[in-house]
Lab assay of single mutants.
Amino acid sequence: MGFKLLSKLLVYLTASIMAIASPLAFSVDSSGEYPTVSEIPVGEVRLYQIADGVWSHIATQSFDGAVYPSNGLIVRDGDELLLIDTAWGAKNTAALLAEIEKQIGLPVTRAVSTHFHDDRVGGVDVLRAAGVATYASPSTRRLAEVEGNEIPTHSLEGLSSSGDAVRFGPVELFYPGAAHSTDNLIVYVPSASVLYGGCAIYELSRTSAGNVADADLAEWPTSIERIQQHYPEAQFVIPGHGLPGGLDLLKHTTNVVKAHTNRSVVE
């Protein structure tokens, strides 16, 4: 069995187990497998329904001669939608809004960016022009300005110390501490036991640490421990890039980060 097929099978099995364990909360999309990078042309966006009122959005972007996937989250909030992270750029984010209108038909009224990198804030200006209120932590807003990236308009308070959590509509926002970046936030959907790890969490097929220019490698494993301790009931975990899975993604990420750190020390 090929690795790609095995990865998709694991996603399907995880979703099936969740649907059985929580039949009222989960209505997993039966329309197909989780979209992969090879299936999404740059400039297009796919939506994948995880649970009743919960979707991931998947886009792709060219970077350094390669094409990478990027995940975000959409959560229903009454007759409105909360968006977590842009679709990595203005063109993708405009396509995301169009796809949401086509498939869901509810307005996106608020959006949260989970850290300051372009795959999370690139497209904020498109959201703002569409009347979406954009939010991020003060740290993310400051770092985005320093980096020359787009800056969300509103500040999220109460997320300055490791372990801080605040309720934001249908989700809980959690600051686990520094990891992929010093400002990275985690998003949890309690009604569906869905954990969105953003770039602080890796997919299972990833074996290298990737972009760690703004990471705190020493603190990252401790931050992941905080996530595990705060959300032990999480059933569906979405990484910032690639295929979702279960809580095993947290341990896998820790292993990859520690291996990278150990290699760096040896070198």
Results as ranks from 00 to 15, higher is better:
Gly210Thr: 07
Leu97Ile: 00
Gln229Arg: 08
Ile224Gly: 10
Ile227Phe: 15
Gly246Trp: 08
Asp64Met: 03
Lys102Ile: 07
Ile238Trp: 13
Ala98Ser: 03
Asp52Lys: 07
Ala133Phe: 08
Phe174Tyr: 05
Phe174Lys: 11
Asp119Phe: 00
Ala95Thr: 11
Val121Arg: 15
Ala95Glu: 14
Leu81Gln: 01
Ile186Leu: 08
Phe174His: 15
Ser160Glu: 10
Ala192Gly: 10
Thr93Trp: 00
Gly163Tyr: 04
Gly89Asp: 10
Glu225Met: 14
Ala200Met: 06
Cys199Lys: 02
Glu233Thr: 05
Glu145Gly: 10
Ser16Thr: 10
Trp55Ile: 04
Ala165Pro: 11
Arg142Gln: 04
Tyr48His: 07
Val11Ala: 09
Ser62Tyr: 09
Asn149Phe: 10
Ser22Gln: 05
Ala19His: 15
Pro35Lys: 07
Val37Glu: 04
Gly105Glu: 12
Val146Trp: 09
Leu82Asn: 06
Val28Gln: 12
Thr134Lys: 01
Pro41Cys: 13
Ser264Arg: 05
Glu33His: 06
Val45Leu: 06
Ile100Met: 15
Glu150Phe: 00
Arg110Leu: 14
Asn211Arg: 08
Pro107Glu: 09
Gly148Glu: 06
Ser38Ile: 14
Leu156Pro: 15
Asp164Ile: 12
Val37Ala: 07
Val54Met: 07
Glu44Arg: 04
Ala51Gly: 07
Gly163Ile: 07
Thr134Phe: 10
Val11His: 14
Arg120Glu: 08
Leu250Tyr: 04
His57Gly: 08
His241Val: 04
Ser62Asp: 12
Val112Gly: 01
Tyr34Leu: 05
Ser193Ala: 11
Gly123Thr: 00
Thr140Asn: 15
Val42Leu: 03
Thr109Val: 11
Gly78Asn: 14
Leu127Tyr: 15
Asn211Trp: 13
Leu81His: 00
Pro176Thr: 07
Cys199Asn: 02
His260Arg: 07
Gly210Asp: 05
His260Ile: 03
Ser56Phe: 03
Ala179Asp: 00
Leu6Tyr: 11
Gly163His: 08
Phe116Thr: 02
Cys199Tyr: 07
Val265Pro: 02
Ser139Trp: 13
Thr261His: 10
Pro176Ala: 10
Lys4Ala: 14
Thr114Asp: 00
Gln61Phe: 04
Ala21Ser: 08
Thr140Gly: 11
Gly131Glu: 14
Asn255Gly: 14
Ser193Thr: 04
Leu156Phe: 10
Gly122Arg: 07
Pro239Cys: 12
Ala192Pro: 14
Leu10Phe: 13
Gly2Phe: 07
Ala111Glu: 13
Leu96Cys: 12
Glu219Ile: 08
Leu82Phe: 07
Asp216Ile: 15
Ile17Gly: 04
Gly89Trp: 02
Ser160His: 04
Thr140Trp: 10
Glu233Asn: 08
Ser155Tyr: 08
Val194Gln: 09
Asp79Cys: 13
Thr86Arg: 00
Ala94Gln: 14
Glu172Leu: 12
Ser62Glu: 10
Ala66His: 03
Leu24Ala: 11
Thr253Arg: 02
Arg110Phe: 00
Gly163Thr: 11
Glu145Phe: 09
Ser162Phe: 05
Val212Trp: 13
Val37Asp: 10
Ala94Ser: 10
Leu73Val: 08
Pro107Phe: 10
Glu219Lys: 05
Thr261Ile: 09
Leu156Asp: 07
Trp88Glu: 00
Ala133Asp: 14
Phe236Asp: 03
Leu9Lys: 02
Phe174Asn: 02
Leu73Arg: 01
Cys199Glu: 02
Ala179Pro: 02
Glu219Phe: 01
Asp248Tyr: 13
Ala19Pro: 15
Asp214Trp: 13
Val11Met: 05
Val45Met: 08
Glu267Met: 10
Phe236Ala: 05
Gln49Met: 03
Val108Phe: 00
Ser139Gly: 08
Leu82Pro: 00
Ala133Met: 15
Asp164Arg: 12
Thr14Ser: 11
Pro138Ile: 15
Ser137Val: 06
Val37Cys: 04
His57Leu: 03
Ala209Tyr: 03
Asn71Pro: 01
Ala51Arg: 04
Leu47Arg: 09
Leu143Tyr: 03
Asn211Ile: 04
Ile104Tyr: 15
Asp164Trp: 09
Pro69Arg: 07
Ala129Leu: 15
Glu101Tyr: 01
Pro69Ile: 14
Phe236Gln: 03
Ile74Lys: 01
Ser22Gly: 09
Gly240Met: 02
Ser160Asn: 14
Arg142Asp: 11
Leu106Thr: 05
Trp55Cys: 02
Ser30Glu: 07
Ser137Thr: 02
His230Thr: 03
Ala215Glu: 11
Ile186Val: 10
Cys199His: 00
Val11Phe: 02
Asp125Ser: 15
Leu217Glu: 06
Pro170Glu: 12
Leu204Gln: 10
Gly177Trp: 03
Tyr231Ser: 10
Lys4Val: 05
His260Lys: 01
Gly53Phe: 12
Leu73Asp: 03
Arg226Lys: 01
Val237Asn: 03
Ala25Thr: 09
Tyr12Asp: 12
Tyr202Phe: 00
Ile227Gly: 12
Ala213Val: 11
Ser113Arg: 00
Val75Glu: 03
Ser139Thr: 01
Glu157Arg: 12
Glu99Asp: 09
Pro35Thr: 05
Ile84Glu: 00
Phe174Glu: 11
Ser191Leu: 11
Thr207Asp: 14
Asn71Gln: 06
Ala215Tyr: 14
Gln229Tyr: 03
Leu249Asn: 15
Leu10Ser: 08
Tyr202Met: 15
Leu204Ile: 11
Ala200Ile: 11
Asp164Tyr: 13
Glu80Gln: 12
His180Cys: 01
Gly43Thr: 09
Ile224Lys: 01
Ile84Phe: 15
Leu47Met: 08
Ser30Gly: 07
Phe236Val: 09
Asp164Leu: 10
Met18Pro: 08
Ile201Leu: 13
Thr86Tyr: 07
Ser162Glu: 05
Ser22Tyr: 04
Glu150Trp: 15
Tyr12Cys: 13
Gln49Ile: 06
Ile100Gln: 01
Phe26Arg: 05
Ala87Asp: 00
Thr253Ile: 03
Tyr135Gln: 09
Met18Leu: 03
Asp214His: 09
Glu172Trp: 10
Ala259Ser: 02
Glu101Gly: 11
Glu147Thr: 01
Met1Gln: 04
Ser27Trp: 12
Gly2Leu: 13
Ala165Gly: 11
Asn262Ile: 04
Arg206Ile: 11
Asp77Trp: 04
Lys91Asp: 13
Ala218Phe: 10
Thr86Trp: 00
Ile227Leu: 06
Lys251Phe: 06
Gly169Val: 10
Ala15Glu: 12
Pro41Met: 12
Pro107Lys: 06
Arg110Pro: 00
Glu33Asp: 11
Tyr231Leu: 06
Leu243Trp: 12
Tyr196Arg: 02
Lys4Asp: 05
His230Gln: 06
Asn255Val: 11
Phe26Glu: 12
Val189His: 02
Asp79Gln: 15
Ser162Cys: 13
Leu6Glu: 09
Glu150Asn: 02
Val67Asn: 09
Ile58Arg: 05
Trp88Ala: 13
Gln103Ala: 05
Arg206Glu: 15
Trp55Gly: 05
Met18Asn: 01
Lys258Ser: 07
Arg46Glu: 08
Gly78Tyr: 12
Met18Phe: 15
Gln103Met: 03
Ala165Leu: 11
Tyr175Phe: 03
Thr153Asp: 00
Ala144Met: 00
Val194Ser: 15
Val132Phe: 12
Phe236Glu: 09
Leu9Phe: 11
Arg141Ser: 11
Gln103Lys: 09
Ala144Glu: 15
Gly198Arg: 01
Glu219Gln: 13
Ser137Ala: 11
Leu204Tyr: 04
Glu233Ile: 11
Gly245Met: 15
Val237His: 03
Gly240Ile: 12
Glu147Leu: 06
Pro176Cys: 12
Glu225Ser: 03
Leu9Met: 03
Glu145Gln: 03
Ala179His: 00
Arg128His: 14
Gln229His: 15
Arg263Ile: 02
Arg120Asn: 01
Glu101Trp: 14
Lys258Leu: 08
Gly123Ala: 05
Leu13Arg: 06
Ala178Thr: 12
His260Pro: 04
Glu157Met: 09
Ser27Lys: 03
Ile40Phe: 04
Ile74His: 00
Val121Asn: 15
Met1Pro: 05
Ser56Ile: 01
Ala66Phe: 07
Leu185Val: 11
Ser7Gln: 00
Leu143Glu: 09
Glu39Ala: 09
Val132Asn: 15
Asp164Phe: 09
Asp214Pro: 11
Ile40Val: 07
Pro152Asn: 07
Gly65Ile: 05
Ile84Trp: 00
Ile50His: 14
Lys251Asp: 06
Val121Ala: 14
Ala15Asn: 14
Thr60Arg: 06
Ala144Ile: 15
Arg128Trp: 13
His241Ala: 01
Thr36Phe: 02
Val54Asn: 15
Ala259Gln: 03
Gly197Cys: 14
Asp77Met: 02
Val171Cys: 01
Gly72Arg: 01
Ala209Glu: 11
Val124Lys: 12
Ser62Gln: 04
Asp64Arg: 06
Pro138Asp: 10
Pro190Met: 12
Ala94Asn: 13
Gly78Ser: 05
Ser31Phe: 00
Thr140Pro: 02
Pro221Cys: 07
Tyr231Gln: 15
Glu99Gln: 06
